[in-house]
Design a protein around this nucleic acid. Structure first.
Length: 471
RNA sequence: GCUCCCAUCGUCUAGUGGCCUAGGACGCUGGCCUCUCACGCCGGUAACAGGGGUUCGAAUCCCCUUGGGAGCGCCA
């Protein structure tokens, strides 16, 4: 039997980290077992579903690299099929029309709550309705078995038993004939021959009902694996309005997709003490049965650390691809300055995100507007004038514009004036980068280029003289 | 309220009855390195929720308590 897994989001918002993690787990499971990964869009809630959300989800999946083998399938395009199954079930006596009004159901619910009972449908219409009111279009309910128990052999939770008496006759078709979630899931998982359902554990309580429907339809239920929710930093469940940001937001914040994936796979799962997993390693080592059954809190600092790790260790060409996007946001065309790969080489150890790296690299490509106020105040002072003038001379005289020679020139000036290297490097840094932070001064100047370096040195000297006059 | 799930450092986790005076990672922190910022290196901080059992022996098994989470929709 070939493994077939699916990710089935409802398009009522973007793809957030929780969804991304269950998608990743499903994807890994399929990849590991040489199976098929299916994407299914559960858009039966016409009110809340939107095409923009579908696009956002697809975009998120693409950015993460979770490619699907089949789909996306849309439930809204399968309505005829759902209707057909509903008719079959009605005919077989496995489902029935219910004419109970919403008001009655609401009252029933509050009465049960008042009696400290679990609210559920009382089965009023289960055995037929003598005089069906002509003015109400009935819903269709599934006839749940009255006794016995349903056992879920969950890959993560182990055995979970539900008494049938806890389950009521759920609605499978609304008054307008459209099918409801628990029913479409069953039909789709059946029709798509899903073998392993890996989903959030908020669905664990739905599972026995889905299994009962599957049984009524004469099918063996798939294997289930309910993965725990992700909690926010405060321990509360991560939700769209509570810290669960879109995966695309992580792209815009300068994260690499592999960093997010690595972070997500380690949330609730581990392989000894290993922290870093390439995609191939994940596929090889990930085992859904070893996923923790307890919820895990999302820790932004660790994600940041992983991102930094991937920035430091990935192929510069790969970084360049993602960094270009962020450079573009700063209005920079990476081909208009020093070789981007060389810039990455010198910046990769000093950035936790690509946004940070882009920000710190702007000065290589564009002249800055103004010096950092504090840095200029502490480094572009009158005493810096002499060393800068001397350095300018030596740099001008350099026959070869490369880091080694530049380093010797800077060190030479320091020595000639009896200064520590920092006394000259810092003013130069502010002059060239606009602030007191940059890669080593020699490689920085080498990359900025002689013309720009000399021009910025002149600007700095002028700045110092003006300050002096004012003072 | 009822049903279901869960419980090791602040966080992610190792641990599946003796290897545990509980290991790793992030964070925080002391030091080294140093032209800035970083990187790196060395060190430190900090946990088995509580109580009962079972056992020669329990973080590991059982029960209770407490604490978290989910579900109980003509939402998905």
């Amino acid at each position: 039997m070939t493994v077939r897994t699916r990710f089935a989001p409802s398009p009522t918002g973007y793809l957030h980290v929780g969804g991304a993690r269950t998608a990743l787990f499903s994807w890994l499971y399929a990849r590991k077992h040489g199976g098929t990964f299916i994407l299914r869009i559960e858009d039966t809630d016409l009110e809340r579903s939107s095409a923009e959300s579908v696009d956002a989800i697809l975009q998120g999946m693409t950015w993460l690299g979770l490619e699907y083998d089949e789909g996306p399938f849309y439930q809204t395009q399968r309505f005829p099929r759902y209707k057909e199954v509903i008719q079959d079930m009605l005919k077989a006596g496995q489902a029935y029309h219910c004419f109970c009004s919403k008001e009655r159901l609401e009252q029933l619910r509050s009465e049960q709550m008042a009696r400290k009972e679990k609210p559920r449908y009382d089965g009023k219409c289960r055995h037929g309705v003598a005089n069906p009111p002509a003015d109400v279009s009935p819903v269709v309910r599934f006839k749940n078995p009255l006794d016995g128990a349903v056992t879920v052999e969950d890959l993560i939770r182990g055995r979970v038993v539900f008494q049938s008496s806890e389950l009521d006759d759920l609605i499978i078709a609304r008054g307008d004939g459209t099918p409801t979630y628990n029913f479409t899931v069953v039909v789709d998982d059946m029709d798509m021959n899903i073998t392993h359902v890996i989903r959030g554990d908020d669905h664990l309580n739905n599972t026995p009902r889905q299994m009962n429907m599957l049984k009524a339809l004469g099918r063996t239920p798939p294997v289930y694996a309910h993965v725990p929710m992700i909690l926010g930093a405060d321990g509360a469940r991560l939700s769209k309005r509570h810290g669960a940001v879109s995966v695309m937001q992580y792209r815009d914040d300068g994260f690499l997709p592999e960093a997010l994936l690595n972070y997500l796979v380690r949330l609730g799962w581990s392989h000894g003490d290993q922290e870093i997993f390439s995609i191939d390693e994940m596929v090889k080592l990930f085992d859904v049965t070893q996923v923790h059954s307890s919820a895990a809190a999302f820790n932004p600092e660790k994600l940041l650390w992983l991102n930094q790790h991937y920035i430091k260790n990935s192929d510069p060409k790969h970084i360049a691809h993602h960094l270009s996007y962020h450079l573009g946001k700063f209005g920079i065309d990476p081909t208009s300055g020093p070789d981007l790969l060389e810039v990455i080489q010198v910046q990769r150890e000093r950035a936790k995100t690509l946004v940070e790296m882009a920000q710190n690299s702007v000065f290589f490509y564009k002249d800055f507007e103004a010096y950092d106020t504090k840095d200029a105040a502490s480094h572009l002072k009158p005493e810096a004038e002499k060393p800068l003038i001397l350095l300018r001379e030596r740099l001008t005289a350099l026959s070869l514009w490369e880091a080694q020679a530049i380093h010797e020139a800077v060190a030479g000036v320091a020595e000639a004036l009896g200064l520590k290297l920092g006394k000259i490097a810092q003013p130069v840094r502010v002059a060239i980068a606009g602030r007191a932070v940059s890669p080593p001064i020699d490689v920085t100047l080498a990359l900025v280029g002689r013309d720009k370096t000399l021009k910025r040195l002149d600007a700095a000297l002028e700045y110092i003289r003006n300050q002096t006059v004012v003072a």
